[in-house]
Every structure is written in structure tokens, then in C-alpha cells.
Design a protein around this nucleic acid. Structure first.
Length: 421
RNA sequence: GGAGGCGUCGCCUAGUCUGGUCUAUGGCGCCCGCCUGCUAAGCGGGUUUGGGGCUACAACCCCAUCGAGGGUUCAAAUCCCUCCGCCUCCGCCA
């Protein structure tokens, strides 16, 4: 949720942001209008309520006949107060629901437009030239099956489409990747958490996953809980309704969790292999920072993500995601997309978002400053996910059908290469 | 699953039975000041959070806030209902 004060003081900035996102601009004036009505009704209510309260003291002090007279006099104020309160609450609710539809105000420099309007920041590494090496690369699924690393058929048997087993070296490789990521996060000062992956509707909504992503989410009807699609949800909820101390610097947390996504509306897309699946593992970084430090922290998150991709020997590019593709909470988002040889294109492996104060405002996470409290900024980023295996397997495959394990992973896998069984 | 107990402004705590100067008590901690060669002790003051008014974003005034939400009442921390959380015991299952 954006700050109503920003909207009052500088509505044009919000309009510019809405326009860049391709969202409704008129809602800005609708909020301003609702806000004015809310404040007016609030004032009416408070005035009468104050009168009622002071009258109540007179009643308390009075006795006998005098008391009865006073009671008769205020009889109807109670009803009137209730009416004004209801009107005030209705106005507040209208203002809130309108305000909630507004996405975070984008940061200067974020490109306008939709999915294809991203700005390319940098391309790193050269896609491997298999033609020059004289062999046709196999896709990650073919490789995975030949190497006894991925078993889609049994995944489908047990759980349906878009489920899979990682087997033997495949499972080992994923664990190695996660452990590498967790070690790096620790070295960078992140505190590791093991987090709930089932959360309440309040937490889910607070983190911003019940708006645009609502049908992407698994819901457990019987318990009114949601399965999280990322540990970002639990990490964002960790300090909900708290006032935290950021005077010693940002708070950095990391968590590995299983992530669940319905992938509704993606029929026919990426049906092969483990690119797009209902369940996967992810190591996520999450930062609580002072608003003025947020952009620097965002750069740092991107740097850590790039460090992983660099050391895994992947060719990738970094993009500045366009406004219309940010989702509600993010004010800016950088994606790292790795080259997938058999697809001949870059696919998203990591994503880091600067949510400024948008997410924290909903979750009510504040810090104590010199003049009272204020909402903190939150940021998140991917350090590793199961999808990395796609790029790793394809990029590091050899003519003989084996896959060379990147050096940084070897201490974790315990083997240097995966060879056909 | 069953029975019971508890939730008060950082922490502890009074108040709840018997609704009304509760404008929520006291202690600890913390902050400011006095005193002091320095520290401690002592003394005085301050110390929930959110919102609104007025404004210099001060001071001040007002509203809400006693786990959350409803209700009763002229009036609710206090009475009633629902929900949430924690604790104890019993049962069941790891």
C-alpha cells in the first residue's frame, strides 16, 4: 500500500507511476475524493463523541432527579454517535479499498510499458557455441533422464503434471546448489531462518500475493491457510506489527523453502521438464532497510545474485523490468536471465525487488527514528532455485553425454561430473 | 478431540467480582535535567501506538487504542457473544 500522505502531497507523482504501469490514473483522484470525505466524516464523529464523553462525566457526578434529567437529555446522542461512526468507517473503508488498488510508485529510471519493454542492463558471458564444438546439445530433460537426475514420469504418476522427482545426482545437485547459496548468504551477513510455508490470509495479503497473484496460490480451504509460492511471504511476515531497530544497519534474512505455485493460466507453456513446476526449492534473501538505504541494498542483492551465476559459469543478462511487469509491491525489479542453449533464449533464474515501504506498510513493520516511528523498506531477491539446474545441465553438458559440475558446487556434490548410468 | 486458566501502554504489575474523577496504578528499564571532581546513589520530570484539527513537520487540543471483532449501556479494561494466541491437565497420534 502506498502512503496516503504522498498521494495527498504529490498526486502527480502517483499518476505518472500509474501511467508507466499502464494502470488506471483516475483512481488517484478517486482516492483524494474519498480521503476528503473520510476526514470530514471523521471530524463530525469525533466532535460529537467528545461531547458525549464529557456529558457522561456530568452524568456520573449527578444524583437522583438531576441524573434522570441528564440521561433523558443524552438519550439520542448515543444513536447519533453510532451513525456517525458507521459513516466514518464506511468512508475509511472506501478510501482503503481504492488505495489498495494502486501499485507502488516506481523509482525514477524504471522503463514504462509491459513485459517486452524491459531495459537491458548488461549481458554477461557468451552463450556456448555447440555448433563450433560439433555436437547438438540435449535439453535439460533429456539430459536429466539419461543421467538419472530427473524423473518426470513418476512425478506425474504420484502428483500429476508439473510434478517431478529429482533422483540421485539430480537431487544431490539441487542440495549442493542450495547449500552453496546458504553459505554465501551467511558470509554476507544474512541470518538464516527456517520458515512456515503455510500462512494466514492476513500474511499472504500483507506480502501482496492475494491481488494479482491470487489464482496462482494454493489455498487450504479446510484450514483457511495458504501455501506460499516463495519464502518471501514468511520473511516479510516475520516482523509484521513490530517496531524494529535499524540503527545498527539493515536486517538481512535468508531462508530456503519449498515453493508452491498453481501455474494457473500457463497451460501449454513450458510443459517439458522442470522450468515451470508446481513445487520447487528456493533460497531467498530478504532485507529490512531504512527507506534511504533501499536502493543501495537493492544493488547489493543484485550483486549477490550475479555472484552465483558468474561462479556457476552461466551466460546471462540482467534486465530492469518494465513498470507494467513489476507487480503491485515492487518499485523496481531486476531479473537475471540465464541462457538456455536448447531454447536459444534467456530465461529468468533470479529476481530481486525493491518494495520500498509498500509491503511493510501493509504488514505494519516500522522502525524507531529520531522523530517517532516510520515504515521501513523491504527488499527481496533469489539466490538459488531448482530452475538453475536447467541452465547448469544444459550449459555444462559434454559431447559424451556427461555434465561437468561447476567447480564451486563440487565441495557440496562430492562429484565432479554426472555421467550416464 | 475434551476440560480449565490466562492475555493491561518495552518488561513485570494494580485495576475486572461490585461499569462512572481510570484522564489506566506501581516497579524495572530507558531518556532529559538537578546534584556531583568522575561514576554510583539521591531528587525532579518524561516515556504505548495510530489518526485528525491547528500549524513552523513545534507547542497545544481532540478521537481511537487494555489480544481482535461484535453487542449491552447515557457510560465498558470492567458485563455478554464470537474468534485468535499462550499455558496446564486428560485423550489420541507420532
Amino acid at each position: 500500500m502506498i502512503d496516503i500522505r504522498l498521494l495527498r502531497e504529490d498526486p502527480e507523482r502517483v499518476r505518472v507511476s500509474q501511467r508507466a504501469r499502464g494502470e488506471d490514473v483516475g483512481v488517484v483522484d478517486a482516492v483524494l475524493d474519498a480521503d476528503a470525505r473520510h476526514r470530514s466524516s471523521l471530524s463530525d464523529y469525533e466532535t460529537l463523541r467528545a461531547a458525549q464523553k464529557s456529558f457522561g462525566k456530568k452524568v456520573a457526578a449527578a444524583q437522583g432527579e438531576e441524573k434522570q434529567a441528564l440521561l433523558a437529555e443524552v438519550k439520542d446522542t448515543a444513536a447519533r454517535v453510532k451513525e456517525l461512526e458507521a459513516a466514518k468507517d464506511a468512508a475509511a473503508e472506501e478510501r482503503e479499498s481504492l488505495l489498495r488498488t494502486i501499485g507502488n510508485v516506481i523509482i525514477d529510471g524504471v522503463p514504462s510499458g509491459g513485459e517486452d519493454d524491459f531495459a537491458l542492463i548488461e549481458t554477461i558471458g557468451e552463450p556456448r557455441d555447440f555448433a563450433a564444438e560439433g555436437f547438438e546439445p540435449l535439453d535439460h530433460l533429456a539430459l536429466g533422464e539419461r543421467l538419472g537426475a530427473i524423473d518426470m514420469a513418476r512425478g506425474a504418476k504420484v502428483s500429476g503434471s508439473r510434478f517431478y522427482y529429482l533422483t540421485g545426482p539430480g537431487a544431490r545437485l539441487e542440495t549442493a546448489l542450495m547449500n552453496l547459496a546458504l553459505d554465501r548468504a551467511r558470509d554476507a551477513g544474512f541470518v538464516q531462518l527456517q520458515v512456515p510455508t503455510l500462512v494466514t490470509p492476513q500474511t499472504m495479503a500483507g506480502a501482496g500475493f492475494l491481488d494479482a497473484h491470487a489464482d496462482e496460490v494454493y489455498r487450504l480451504e479446510a484450514d483457511d491457510l495458504y501455501l506460499t509460492g516463495t519464502s518471501e511471504v514468511a520473511l516479510a511476515g516475520f516482523h509484521a506489527d513490530e517496531i524494529i531497530d535499524l540503527t545498527q544497519g539493515p536486517r538481512r534474512y535468508t531462508a530456503m523453502s519449498t515453493c508452491y505455485r498453481r501455474e494457473a493460466g500457463s497451460y501449454g507453456k513450458d510443459t517439458q521438464g522442470i522450468i515451470r513446476v508446481h513445487q520447487f526449492q528456493k533460497v531467498e534473501m530478504f532485507i529490512y532497510a531504512r527507506p534511504e538505504d533501499a536502493e543501495a541494498e537493492h544493488e547489493a542483492l543484485l550483486k549477490w545474485e550475479r555472484g552465483m551465476l558468474d561462479d556457476l559459469g552461466l551466460a546471462y543478462r540482467v534486465i530492469d523490468v518494465a513498470a507494467g511487469d513489476l507487480g503491485g509491491p515492487a518499485a523496481r525489479k531486476f531479473d537475471c536471465e540465464a541462457w538456455v542453449p536448447t531454447q536459444g533464449r534467456y530465461r529468468e533464474l533470479t529476481s530481486t525487488s525493491n518494495c520500498t515501504t509498500y509491503q511493510a506498510r501493509r504488514l505494519n513493520t516500522r522502525e524507531r527514528g529520531e522523530s517517532g516511528t516510520r515504515t521501513v523498506a523491504t527488499l527481496n531477491g533469489t539466490l538459488a532455485t531448482t530452475r538453475f539446474l536447467v541452465a547448469i545441465l544444459e550449459t555444462h553438458q559434454q559431447a559424451d553425454g556427461s555434465v561437468t559440475v561447476p567447480e564451486v558446487l563440487r565441495p557440496y556434490t562430492g562429484f565432479d561430473a554426472i555421467t550416464p548410468a
